[in-house]
């Protein structure tokens, strides 16, 4: 792995660990996975229009996040049903539109040559996610305990929710290169789920989740390169092994 690629994968992993910590605590683990699927039709359209796939993916992911947000403002039950239907349908539509190698690359990620624009965008966007979580963490903590209490503490709950979901969507877009549409949800959820089992306070949760994500990304990429296989599945296997190990852990 080149130093630039290593740098990018580390900042993306940290962003995934941080944004994932709050996803896991907010019980939206199940929404994360289908939301990442919505990127596929975006990638298909972008390829057809000869645009960078990332452009289409981001547009669709932001739209998907907006949909989740709007539905959450309504009732809970409908959200899960609509996510199940709309986002898996998006995966199907995207698969019809994309073909051959492009489809495999979009589904599982592919580590092709890393251009400067993509590197700069990736580092800036991942840093934005990291800054968002670190500066908003107090608001996010209060909101996840109770949105009513958050309102009396002067937090604009609707706006913070929307911002959080958009940052979540951006994080998925960042990981498409390494993990693809099918597996990016896993890099956000699994390290955070591991951290949740081990951590005893919020500081620990954020640090452990980021570290697990970095270790999984770097060692998974290295393993995949040695074995000449796709990167994404290896990253997820390493992350999931960490989670299995954490099951043996008992909190002090």
């Amino acid at each position: 792995m080149t130093p630039e690629a290593l740098l990018l994968s580390v900042v993306v992993a940290v962003a995934a660990g941080l944004i994932g910590s709050f996803a896991v605590m907010r019980r939206m683990s199940l929404a994360a996975d289908p939301l990442s699927h919505v990127a596929l039709p975006g990638i298909g359209v972008a390829l057809a229009l000869h645009l960078h796939p990332l452009v289409g993916a981001i547009a669709m992911l932001f739209f998907g996040a907006l949909l989740v947000w709007a539905l959450e403002e309504q009732s809970r039950l409908a959200t899960e049903t609509v996510i199940g239907v709309v986002f898996t349908a998006a995966l199907a539509v995207g698969s019809v539109m994309t073909s051959g190698e492009d489809l495999i690359a979009a589904l599982f990620g592919s580590v092709g040559a890393l251009g400067w624009p993509e590197l700069v965008f990736g580092v800036v966007a991942a840093s934005a996610v990291i800054v968002f979580v670190l500066t908003q963490r107090n608001r996010l903590i209060v909101m996840l305990v109770s949105s009513d209490i958050a309102r009396t503490a002067g937090i604009n709950v609707r706006r913070l929710n929307l911002l959080y979901l958009q940052m979540f969507a951006l994080t998925i877009a960042l990981g498409l290169r390494y993990l693809g549409v099918l597996l990016m949800g896993a890099l956000i959820i699994i390290p955070a789920a591991t951290a949740r089992r081990v951590a005893v306070n919020i500081q620990g949760m954020l640090v452990i989740a980021s570290m697990c994500a970095v270790v999984a990304t770097v060692s998974g990429s290295w393993l995949a390169a040695r074995l000449h296989r796709e990167t994404g599945p290896f990253i997820v296997v390493v992350a999931a092994s960490g989670f299995l190990l954490s099951l043996a852990w008992r909190r002090p």
Partner: peptide, 18 residues
């Protein structure tokens, strides 16, 4: 198993100020 302590929760409020 929410890894948020009483201190985390109260400090979050104090840091939000107002």
């Amino acid at each position: 198993d929410l890894p948020i302590t009483g201190y985390d929760f109260l400090r979050a409020r104090v840091k939000l100020g107002g």
